[in-house]
């Protein structure tokens, strides 16, 4: 697979390590009444879709940036790559 890095252009996926679902960006509120359950769901439960999946990749042997890659888990086709920083900022702004 080739990941089209927003800053560096097309890079071989072997340069990256994989973390998982982009929902791992959404750390729950530790002060919430339901924090124990929220952290359980955040840490352990996954949608695990067959189809479009947004996921976190780390450019380990590159510029060490975190990316959000939109990829199809059935065809492995990558349709979008963003800097995780930008995605996280935007999610923060929407809260």
């Amino acid at each position: 697979m080739i990941i089209n890095h927003p800053l560096l252009g097309p890079r071989d996926a072997q340069e990256f390590t994989y973390l998982g679902d982009v929902s791992l960006l959404d750390r729950p509120d530790w002060q919430s009444e339901t924090a124990a359950q929220d952290f359980h769901d955040y840490m352990y439960l996954r949608d695990n879709p067959a189809g479009v999946h947004r996921e976190l990749w780390f450019h380990e042997i590159g510029d060490r940036s975190w990316l959000v890659v939109t990829r199809n888990t059935v065809t492995h086709e990558i349709t979008n790559v963003e800097l995780a920083r930008d995605v996280a900022r935007q999610r923060g702004a929407e809260k």
Binding site: D41, R46, D47, N48, P49, A50
Partner: peptide, 18 residues
């Protein structure tokens, strides 16, 4: 391997990735 896909039809999220 289809566990996530099938159980989603019962609105369950599992501690599983495929």
């Amino acid at each position: 391997g289809s566990s996530g896909r099938l159980m989603a039809k019962a609105n369950m999220r599992l501690p599983i990735e495929s």
